Computed example of a mutant assay.
Amino acid sequence: MFPITLPEEAALSPVAFELAVQDTHGLEVAARLGADRIELCSALALGGVTPSLAFVEAAVATPGIPPVHVLVRPRPGGFTYDPAETATILQDVRHVLRTGATGVVIGGVRDATVDTDLVKRVLDAAGDAPVTFHRAFDSLPDPVAAVETLAALGVRRILTSAGATSVADALPALAALVTTAAGRIDIMAGGGVTVDLIPALLRTGVPAIHASAKCLIPDDLTIGLGTSSPAGPGGRETTDLGLATALLAAIRAAH
């Protein structure tokens, strides 16, 4: 899409950096950057939904790409799924792992708690592949109980802003979740992550930080394509190399 150049690479940080990627330019950035893993998705402006299998294939075939963890979310909106949606999630989990993904990112809520039936079925479908529980976690009224539930089930990590829209507004709560997890499950900070916020996030003890590092490319529409895509001046999001580089540099510099 546009040329990519990077500064000389530094040593890898012990705190993992996960980059959310929603297009092929983002794949190029992730491969060049040296991120620890990517979360592959589509439509980040809607919170992210399941990407196409062709995009998963492109990701795992990209030279130098870090481990690919695929978001499996069948639609925008809330996280309570009916049986047909659950079946779609399970099939997508199987499909993306057969395509070569390293892990999957899922979430489900039932009666204001973790949808344990869904999570158990995803874990069974995923086999040895790691499973991340996404920010559906932040909609739960008892996050401590949710950490205990997910750790006991065998989920590898939780992506969370500690219940806030932006993780910057919930740093003490984030630190408390790390304490509750006690190394049994990783607490990965995400949601409104900025370069200036990195030192404070690292002080909470999180072992991983997640960011999308987005920028907006102007891209006018001559016709309306739906309520979220009206005609007129607008744009589309993609990964910003400079921001992604600065985020990773800040994580590494702190160590």
Results as ranks from 00 to 15, higher is better:
residue 12 L to P: 15
residue 24 T to A: 15
residue 32 R to N: 14
residue 35 A to Q: 11
residue 43 A to V: 08
residue 51 P to V: 02
residue 52 S to I: 04
residue 54 A to Y: 07
residue 57 E to S: 07
residue 61 A to D: 03
residue 62 T to S: 08
residue 72 V to C: 13
residue 75 R to F: 13
residue 88 T to N: 10
residue 89 I to V: 15
residue 89 I to A: 12
residue 96 V to P: 15
residue 100 G to N: 10
residue 101 A to Q: 12
residue 102 T to H: 14
residue 107 G to C: 13
residue 107 G to T: 14
residue 113 T to G: 12
residue 122 V to R: 03
residue 127 G to A: 03
residue 129 A to F: 01
residue 130 P to F: 01
residue 131 V to M: 09
residue 134 H to M: 05
residue 136 A to S: 13
residue 140 L to W: 00
residue 145 A to N: 06
residue 145 A to K: 01
residue 155 V to Q: 00
residue 155 V to C: 00
residue 162 A to P: 14
residue 165 T to D: 13
residue 175 A to D: 07
residue 178 V to N: 00
residue 179 T to W: 00
residue 181 A to H: 00
residue 182 A to K: 01
residue 184 R to C: 01
residue 190 G to E: 02
residue 192 G to I: 02
residue 192 G to R: 07
residue 193 V to T: 05
residue 193 V to Q: 03
residue 196 D to C: 10
residue 198 I to L: 06
residue 206 V to H: 07
residue 207 P to K: 11
residue 213 A to R: 05
residue 214 K to D: 07
residue 214 K to F: 07
residue 218 P to C: 09
residue 219 D to C: 11
residue 227 T to D: 14
residue 227 T to Q: 13
residue 230 P to R: 08
residue 235 G to T: 04
residue 245 T to F: 07
residue 246 A to N: 08
residue 253 A to M: 10
